[in-house]
Structure formats: C-alpha cells, structure tokens
Measured scan of single mutants.
Amino acid sequence: AVCQRCQARFSPAERIVNSNGELYHEHCFVCAQCFRPFPEGLFYEFEGRKYCEHDFQML
C-alpha cells in the first residue's frame, strides 16, 4: 500500500492513518490549505480534499 498524499510506501513499523479506506503516513494526514495536522483528528472534506475547521470556513 502507498500513502494517498505522497505516494510513498509504508514501512512495517510505521503508524498509518486510515480515513475512509484512504491510507496516509501520520505526517501526511494534514490540512490541504495550511498543511497542519488536524486537531483531535477532526477535519472537513470538500471536493475530495481535507481541511481543518478554520480553512474549511474560509472556502
């Protein structure tokens, strides 16, 4: 399997985020606008991209 964002493979010891069947490295699972991790894992999706609450409100 490969990361949805960076397309790199996962190492066996690595923590992986699964979002609706899409797999991400922990450091790749970030807001599409500000590139920060999601507070408490909370995000909003718009047109296939994931956003933090602040950036989602700015759309």
Results as ranks from 00 to 15, higher is better:
Glu26Cys: 03
Glu26Ser: 11
Val2Trp: 02
Cys3Trp: 03
Met58His: 11
Asn20His: 14
Cys3Asp: 00
Arg9Asp: 11
Arg49Phe: 06
Pro39Met: 08
Phe35Ala: 14
Arg36Asn: 08
Gln33Gly: 08
Cys6Ile: 00
Glu47Asp: 10
Arg9Met: 10
Cys52Leu: 01
Asn18Val: 05
Gln7Ser: 10
Gly21Ser: 11
Gln4Met: 15
Gln57Cys: 04
Arg49Glu: 07
Phe29Leu: 12
Glu40His: 13
Asp55Val: 00
His54Gln: 13
Cys52Met: 02
Gln57Tyr: 02
Ala1Arg: 02
Val2His: 06
Gln7Pro: 01
Cys28Phe: 00
Glu14Ala: 13
Glu47Arg: 08
Phe43Met: 07
Ala32Phe: 06
Ala8Ser: 14
Asn18Ser: 04
Cys52Glu: 01
Pro39Val: 11
Glu26Gln: 10
Val30Ile: 06
Gln33Asn: 13
Phe35Trp: 10
Leu59Glu: 04
His27Phe: 07
Cys28Asn: 00
Glu40Thr: 08
Glu22Ile: 08
Ser19Gly: 12
Val17Asp: 05
Gly48Ala: 07
Pro12Leu: 10
Leu42Asn: 12
Glu22Phe: 15
Ala32Lys: 05
Glu53His: 14
Ser11Trp: 08
Cys34Thr: 00
Ile16Ser: 11
Ala8His: 11
Gly21Glu: 13
Pro39Leu: 07
Cys34Phe: 00
Ser19Tyr: 03
Glu53Asp: 15
Glu14Tyr: 06
Cys28Pro: 00
Arg15Trp: 02
Cys6Asn: 02
Ser11Arg: 07
Cys31Gly: 01
Gln7Met: 13
Arg9His: 11
Gln7Cys: 07
Gln7Gly: 13
Phe56Gln: 01
Phe10His: 04
Cys31His: 03
Glu53Leu: 07
Phe29Ala: 15
Gln57Ile: 05
Ile16Phe: 12
Gly21Leu: 07
Arg15Phe: 03
Arg15Glu: 12
Val30Tyr: 04
Cys28Met: 03
Asn18Glu: 09
Tyr44Glu: 10
Tyr24Asp: 03
Ser11Pro: 14
Arg49Tyr: 04
Pro37Ala: 07
Cys31Glu: 02
Tyr51Gln: 01
Ser11Asn: 09
Pro12Phe: 11
Phe10Cys: 08
Asp55His: 13
Phe56Tyr: 04
Leu59Gly: 15
Arg49Lys: 13
Asp55Pro: 01
Val17Tyr: 05
Gln7Asn: 01
Cys52Val: 00
Ser19His: 07
Ala1Glu: 15
Arg15Asp: 12
Phe35Pro: 01
Val2Met: 14
Gln33Arg: 10
Arg49Trp: 05
Lys50Tyr: 09
His27Leu: 15
Glu47Pro: 01
Glu26Leu: 04
Tyr44Met: 09
Cys3Met: 01
